[in-house]
């Protein structure tokens, strides 16, 4: 018999799954001006979107590989060299389309959830 996951773990899993799709949108939205990994993480944290390091940093690389971000090693203010990321023109286009999609989704979900509740 399959072992039943405890409710807490199951909830964590489901909520992670739910958030996963929004991560790309969240990251793209914050990279209109260039950021390095750590500053981006802090930015997102401050705005209530905290993404685990093990997810965020590899995601940046994947987005760059897909052409949505561009990046560069740079030294700013005599700090150590850091890799700075910024949204690319393709990324801008995707962001605007995905934002539209997001609003539609929220509206639809609201309708569904309210209909269920009321």
């Amino acid at each position: 018999m399959a072992k039943q996951p405890d409710k807490e773990a199951l909830y964590d899993n489901l909520s992670l799954e739910l958030r996963r799709g929004a991560l790309v949108l969240a990251v793209l939205s914050q990279l209109r001006q260039e950021e390095y990994g750590y500053s981006l993480k802090q930015n997102l944290d401050a705005r209530g979107m905290s993404i685990n390091e093990g997810t965020l940093y590899p995601l940046l690389r994947r987005l760059e590989k897909q052409g949505l971000l561009s990046s560069d090693w740079r030294v700013i203010d005599d700090a150590r060299p850091r890799r700075y990321y910024q949204i690319s023109p393709v990324g801008e286009m995707m962001l605007s389309n995905l934002t539209q999609e997001w609003h539609n989704l929220v509206q639809t979900m609201d309708r569904l959830l309210l209909a269920k509740g009321g």
Binding site: Y36, G37, Y38, E53, Y57, R61, R80, R82, R83
Partner: peptide, 16 residues
């Protein structure tokens, strides 16, 4: 390159 970036990210976090 990944190693280099990861190192700088860790150093940032540790310093902070």
């Amino acid at each position: 390159d990944i190693e280099r970036e990861l190192r700088s990210l860790l150093q940032d976090a540790v310093d902070e």
